[in-house]
Design a protein around this nucleic acid. Sequence first.
RNA 1: GGCUCGGUGGCAGAGUGGUUAUGUAGGGGCCUGCAAAGCCUUGCACAGCGGUUCGAUUCCGCUCCGAGCCUCCA
Length: 463
Amino acid sequence: MKTLRIHNTLGNNLEEFKPIDPLNVRVYACGPTVYYYAHIGNARMAVVNDLLIRFLKTLYPKVTYVSNITDIDDKIIAASQKNKIPIKELTEKYTKIYNEDMSVLGVKQPDIQPKATDYIKEMINLIEKLIENNFAYEKDGHVLFHVPSFKNYGMLSGRNRDEQITGSRVEVAPYKKDPTDFVLWKPSPSPLPGWESPWGLGRPGWHLECSAMSEKTLGLPFDIHSGGADLIFPHHENEIAQTCAAHKNNDDLKSFAKYWFHNGFVNVEGEKMSKSIGNIKLVHDLVKEYKGEVLRLTLLSAHYRQPLNWTRDIIKQNSTMLDRFYRTLKDLEKVDAYAEKNEIEERIINGLYDDLNTPKVIAELNMLTNGINNADVKTKQKIKFNLLEIGKIFGILQKNPDTWLGYGQSKNINQDTIERLIKDRNEARRNKNFDTADEIRKKLKKEGVEIEDTSEGTIWRSI
RNA sequence: GGCUCGGUGGCAGAGUGGUUAUGUAGGGGCCUGCAAAGCCUUGCACAGCGGUUCGAUUCCGCUCCGAGCCUCCA
């Protein structure tokens, strides 16, 4: 059997994927903090992980995919205060919208979607273990992880403690023993959201929730831990430290997760998305303008670790490509999808085995479909099979081609009217009255209806 | 300042020590009354400078440029 090779941030290497338990592959992806609409960068993480999961599911009998919702955090508190909405209402609202928007992009719900606030007990438990193992200490109501006590700290992100201190631009809080120590628990006096703990009313630090939730939902160690590249430091570095130290596995970083999988950033028109530039692309807006599948293919059009420059142009390019694939499927409407051994062509699927090289797969798919004209039935069956099967993994091409291309569906104009106009036009054409015929065609186009004269008569689609 | 990662044709984007993907846009053509779709065809691409090599876009070094992280961020 071919083996999947994926890039492991831990070690910064391409590695063969060998599941801990082949009967149940376990993946945890750091999900969104729900204080506002998700942007296209959040979507890239969700789509890339969805692809990974779909592919893994073709390789292993069972895959458990956990992706959390962080529903307690300073940004959430700030948004709640600013908008005068209770935290719970705010987080529930944006959790719902997140799931809806991702679903438009073809992202399947994770098997488990834990919420941080449901795991406070586990977090407190983890902190107690860390204190007990001398990796954490309490000071002024804060509990901090003592970074110098964890000698492998920095292995994931490839930085050492000294560099970090020199490069640090942050003021060191007085309750820290060491400038690199990070907060596990902090005081949270009313009216801020707080939970009872051995260290008083407080709330968890940022990194703790993922350590608690992943351990509780998947068990340790699990196979893949993923997220956006910006989470490598400090978020994932800290997660590793917390979890490994809590279980006294500080020499074995893989006792938490074996593979660390990170996707690259999305830039917008060549610039980083940022509030100050005001160029944040929200999925919620994009789905109003483009089909989810187009956005999804666009997100997969670059290799997942490369930066992706989000422009109108690439959306258009991917939209065109998708139309062409659907047109091919339409041409193959009467052909069965069939391939020998029920397998995707090797040269196509190999791209996925090779660290999810989606652009390579797309290129191979194009080459395959280009041969359709002088293809025999068997080849046509194979082409259709490959398109649909890759489509399943990519999360595209599963719709009815006619529906996708808009055949027989009108938005602005009544179908009978269209049919009547087409009839009139064909009448005019018969009489070589081409001016009239062209006028009718233009009129329909204005209404968003495009007609095509085929050997089997005139057909139309809404564009 | 430190640590990463990149610079491929108008644009997007893989890949490779020698045969120069793929898509899209553009040019030319076929088909069509015209369109649409499709098909054919076309394009001095691998940042610069050195080095290794019979040969480098691919390996090494340096330079320039860009991005990310080091602070909340997917």
